[in-house]
Design a protein around this nucleic acid. Structure first.
Lengths: 238, 238
DNA sequence: ACGAAAAATTGACTTTTGTCAGTTTTTTGC
DNA sequence: GCAAAAAACTGACAAAAGTCAATTTTTCGT
């Protein structure tokens, strides 16, 4: 086993992800405050940031890498709700609701992630009304998205859900902006199945169809989207 | 057709629902402010309060009656996410997110519902930090609930979802507190199917099973829960 | 209470999706 | 780069849930 984690140091102001994070509602002074109270850690692939049901001690901000957010069903099956990436802020909802985590978070690759303790986060939330508004808007918006996800899960066949999921993942895996090559989705079939909400075998068979239809190509586990328009049609969007 | 609606007048301070509404975070002065800027309307069964995709002009607060909240799938099928009742506040998420409604709302019975215009609501949100906190907490909490709903929808068989839905509806239909008789759920089979996320025929067959198992009895459309414990077992909760 | 209209119900059948078992390929840590 | 482990894949089959068509019952407005 490789070593578990190591610490590092990154100023928020210098963080490449800062601009697209919720913290972009903060002014320089506030950002400096946060920057000074946070700590920054390098995680290996497959490490857990937090577990569903435990109490939050602060929030996580992703500087680099991807993190899967999921909830466990009763037989231990994961329902993946999001893949978070650079700039993503994790764990603040449980903190605000004064509740335990309703989901778990696990790194999908080696990641650099900052941790901001509860007190600093809540203080910032109180002191900056623009940050407060930003968060409030974000949460309200997410609720709309979740409602749509639920409706899709309840009403659409697997094939459409897969097409929709692939299109979403295109965004998630898209802005690894520095690289200029085409976009490749790098998830295990299990994880993909747990996003779509289906069995792994069913997922594989549908991927096969999409390959035959030339919407995608695969190279090992990697999926490359070749024809987003075709996928949109398969998704039967309205 | 009966007449569409009529206006009435109720002071928030005198509203039986106020104590359990989000407005209970307000002090007397603030409550009076709201009370003076709202209007109150009696709706007939089956009327639409707002449509998915339109822009909110304010928020609705239910004084009396039940309202179904739903999203339309692409073939026009309703996915019902909640049944709101006395004290429920509707439409504030779209307002806060500066977005269109992500769901629609329709009365399930004759209702008395107050309308508070956008400006008053947003002003109160700005001026009362306790109200702001209250809302923020509520939304964060709802997000956790939605995640659980999504997971259930994706992973549980219809039978379990129905049991869970019936148990939830027991709460919704429960606190018609003044009546002392046992709790009866009064929804069409279609609506119930659209909550559970299944076909109406499937729903009916499962209700039949639950009757045979003596978890419930029915009288016309009305469903009475006789054995919550049995239902919990059928729900396979963990 | 009456009669249309809406809703509930039933049965037969189809389709979709999941499960299981086994094989092949890829990934991973050293 | 190698070997073990993990993941991906395939086929046959089973189960769950949806669809369609027809009938009965309930609800609703008058």
């Amino acid at each position: 086993m490789r070593s578990k984690m190591q610490h590092t140091s990154i100023a928020c102001a210098a963080c490449r992800s800062q601009a697209k994070s919720l913290f972009n509602a903060l002014n320089n002074g506030q950002l400096t405050n946060i920057s000074e109270s946070k700590s920054c850690t390098v995680y290996r692939k497959g490490q857990i940031l937090f577990h569903e049901g435990t109490r939050p001690l602060g929030v996580f901000c992703i500087n680099q890498g991807k993190v899967k957010i999921y909830k466990l069903g009763y037989d231990g099956k994961e329902q993946i709700t999001t893949i978070a990436r650079e700039g993503g802020l994790l764990g603040y909802k449980a903190l605000i609701a004064e509740d335990t985590y309703s989901v778990s978070a696990e790194t999908l690759e080696d990641c650099t992630i900052c941790f901001l303790p509860k007190s600093s986060f809540l203080q910032t939330l109180q002191e900056s009304s623009s940050f407060n508004e930003r968060i409030m808007k974000q949460v309200c918006h997410e609720l709309g998205v979740m409602t749509e996800n639920l409706t899709n899960q309840a009403q659409r066949p697997v094939r459409e859900r897969l097409a929709i999921t692939l299109l979403k993942l295109r965004d998630t895996y898209g802005l690894d902006a520095h690289e200029d090559g085409p976009i490749e989705i790098n998830l295990t079939r299990d994880d993909l199945a747990n996003m779509v909400g289906t069995a792994t075998e069913t997922l594989i068979r549908l991927l096969h169809e999409f390959k035959k239809d030339e919407y995608i190509t695969t190279k090992g586990r990697k999926i490359r989207i070749e024809d987003p328009t075709g996928l949109s049609q398969a998704a039967n969007l309205y």
